[in-house]
């Protein structure tokens, strides 16, 4: 997998594993991602979700032999539960990869992948073939 961005590395985001072709990203709870005392910051959580989206999309473009240029169009995050002071994971799914845009769905969880603490949809501009 390509290197994470300086921003993602600074937050403490790492690659926890790959399931199939899907990267699972992880961030430790630390001061850098803390919002209210003892809670994960919504902005840092959004950063983890976006990073998981780009990591998956970049790999998918590479596997398809396509250019890997990506530009954000928009992001909508639903915050479902407060993030506790423990590791957080995120994994994306490509809903549609077109010639010019990609639509992704991303979820973040802590203990149980079936109980997400946040879900996001993101649209990304991808370089045409």
């Amino acid at each position: 997998m390509a290197e994470l961005t300086p921003y993602a590395k600074g937050l403490g985001i790492t690659l926890a594993g790959i399931e199939g072709d899907v990267p699972i990203l992880r961030v430790e709870f630390s001061d850098a991602v803390q919002g209210r005392p003892g809670a994960l910051h919504g902005g840092a959580l959004s950063g983890l979700l976006e990073t998981a989206g780009y990591a998956l999309l970049r790999g998918e473009l590479e596997r398809a032999g396509r250019a890997t240029g990506m530009k954000p169009i928009n992001l909508t995050v639903q915050f479902l539960a407060s993030g506790k002071p423990r590791p957080t994971f995120a994994r994306a799914r490509i809903v549609k990869l077109g010639r010019r845009t990609a639509s992704l769905s991303v979820e973040a969880w802590q203990d149980d992948p079936t109980r997400p603490i946040a879900s996001a949809v993101m649209n990304v501009m991808v370089a045409a073939d």
Partner: peptide, 24 residues
Amino acid sequence: RADLVGEEEREVLASGPIVSLMDM
């Protein structure tokens, strides 16, 4: 700041910090 960029070669702030900025 150099360590907040999204693409190293372009030196542009990543989108994540902008989300945090607007949230706060």
